[in-house]
Design a protein around this nucleic acid. Sequence first.
DNA 1: GCAATATCTTACTGGCGGTAAGTACTATGG
DNA 2: CCATAGTACTTACCGCCAGTAAGATATTGC
Lengths: 225, 225
Amino acid sequence: MECDVRCGESLMDRERRRPGRPTGRQHVVDRERVLDAAERAIAQYGAGVSIEAIAREAGVTKPIVYARVGKRTEVSDALAQRLADRLMEASAAAIGARRTGRGQLVAMIQSSLETLAAHRELFLFVTGGASEEMPQRTLFLAGQSAKPMADQIAAWRKAAGLDPSVALAWAYGVVGLLNMVSLWWITESDQPAERVAEQLADLLWSGLAGITPQRSAELRPNPQT
Amino acid sequence: MECDVRCGESLMDRERRRPGRPTGRQHVVDRERVLDAAERAIAQYGAGVSIEAIAREAGVTKPIVYARVGKRTEVSDALAQRLADRLMEASAAAIGARRTGRGQLVAMIQSSLETLAAHRELFLFVTGGASEEMPQRTLFLAGQSAKPMADQIAAWRKAAGLDPSVALAWAYGVVGLLNMVSLWWITESDQPAERVAEQLADLLWSGLAGITPQRSAELRPNPQT
DNA sequence: GCAATATCTTACTGGCGGTAAGTACTATGG
DNA sequence: CCATAGTACTTACCGCCAGTAAGATATTGC
């Protein structure tokens, strides 16, 4: 039958297609596999990938992508979730042994930079998505990282006897700062991540007032790109 | 002649169309008018406006938009330039009399928030633009504000006897922070701009270390949105 | 074996960005 | 005064892609 041929083509060789009345079985290509494929396709073709390319990469056709995940923005949201998780995970691991607040901050920033650089196109796909509903989407995405961070900040502030109501604004601010600096660093800076992380930590930890000793001064100054 | 009718339709009533060999005259609808129309169309239809809608608003047809300004990204860039100018202007005006560094910072932040809120959809159009080449575009746009700011920061730091090489990273960070917080504030916060500006100034001026007296503590704490 | 049902694909629609070719009009040269 | 050259603008089109509807195919229950 010709299906043998077509199945081989479209589903690659990962276990013959299994249509027909279900026995409670999972889909041949489930949501996670589609998202995996989406990541690969994005890495390969850039942030402007077509849905069809994603489907091809998954070894299925477009409607399957819509059935498993949804429209483009929903693909983007799902991948944003993955990316946020990876950022959290990487940060947690990097912070690890660090003791001082500032040391933790540097570790967090540096791991964020490196994680985003490692998933450059994914980062661009997720942040550069689609028009029109961008406000909701960007905020939702940023909130993914910002809300946990706000809790953390509020806790610290409370423990220090300071007003915790600044937490949310600060958290969104830090997320935005990291976003933009990551974009800049990935695209046109060639300084090592550690150095940029130190610089940002100077800003975030000690502030613009700049009355505290500058740790970045310990590093050899470099011309900017 | 039927042209009388068509001219009236397409060019509205702003001075009959003037085709034919030019006598050095300007275009009937010049670049600035197209950009004005683009702003109006964006304000009306949101960040997802079609080029055709912009053309209609200008009283011309699509190719004219392409002839005067260029493709969608170029429209976006031109409007970004306008917005950046307005931000600068508003900041300069707001800073005005302020004396202290921190006071200037608060004024700058607050005026940015208010300016962006006043041009909400334009802000979203400019930042939410198009896919694929987003990196270059976002950075170009951010750089518009970040580079002058970097010069300022470098000057301040040098004057204070501190390492100025942090300037670029800091500037992009501050721009990103303002971007994100503006988006958040415009979309889902109902706190007054002044309060948010104070909070951010706390972060940027004194840093996360939080060992300096907190001015925001002087304001009555509110539940976050 | 036959019907019911889940699964995947082919094939299509609508809309938009961008462009090429055509039309209407004015000034200048003979 | 007429033809020609040259410009301003429009109509009409192409290609592309997101999203969907209808059709084909295989598997299970009875």
